[in-house]
């Protein structure tokens, strides 16, 4: 997993709420047995007509918008636990998703894959959408160390939460397995204790 410290980027606005993981990556694309290539089918049915032609009205097909930050409505990532949703967003090139609210499993999956979920208050989320509307080239700064998201045009910023352990993992590119494997002895001791 790559390290994450700071990111300055433009953002793609997707002002829809309750975006479920079936929209992020439909089930019929889950047949692969590796983690690569899911970005091609990110938001497949919103992005393409059934015959494969890009839909002009979908934001990812609009050349005005781009960047490594996706800004979206509340309850993003609800539904299925498929980690393929996080892989697809990352594979497409996103490193940060901003919303006023994330579904639990998605948040965990994102963090395990170097994709930072940034949860901000609803009113601040609307400020971000307004900033992009005013200028699609507007730039944003995500600082993981300070846990702060800044709209650079206006200087407005909001803090965001992340557990100290997960923060450490992202900053250093560690993953949970390395950590858990280092606890083998404790785990075996627990098994002994609870056998009674």
């Amino acid at each position: 997993m790559g390290k994450f410290k700071k990111l300055q980027s433009t953002a793609v606005p997707l002002p829809i709420e309750e975006v479920d993981t079936d929209q992020i990556i439909p089930a019929r694309f889950l047949k692969a047995t590796t983690r690569e290539g899911f970005g091609d089918n990110l938001f497949r049915d919103w992005r393409y007509e059934p015959d494969g032609t890009p839909r002009a009205d979908f934001i990812l097909n609009n050349p005005i918008y781009g960047g490594q930050i996706l800004v979206t409505g509340r309850n993003f990532g609800c539904g299925s636990s498929r980690e393929h949703a996080a892989w697809a967003l990352h594979d497409y090139g996103f490193r940060v998703v901003v919303s006023s609210f994330f579904a639990d499993i998605f948040r965990g999956n994102a963090l395990n894959n170097g994709l930072l979920p940034v949860q901000v208050p609803e009113s601040f989320l609307q400020d971000i959408f307004s900033a992009i509307e005013a200028d699609p080239g507007a730039s944003f700064l995500v600082d993981l160390e300070d846990q702060r998201f800044t709209i650079q045009a206006t200087g407005q910023s909001a803090g965001f939460e992340i557990g100290p352990y997960k923060k450490l993992c992202l900053l250093n590119g560690y993953d949970d397995i390395d950590f858990l494997l280092s606890l083998r002895k404790e785990i075996e001791a627990f098994e002994e204790r609870s056998r009674v």
């Binding site: 636990s81 499993i105 894959n113 352990y165 993953d175 949970d176 397995i177 858990l180 785990i187």
Partner: peptide, 19 residues
């Protein structure tokens, strides 16, 4: 329910990091 990275964690250690 868990994601695939966590499936790997459980296979490897029978444990998960959870709050």
């Amino acid at each position: 329910g868990i994601g695939t990275s966590q499936v790997e964690q459980v296979l490897a250690t029978q444990c998960l990091l959870q709050s």
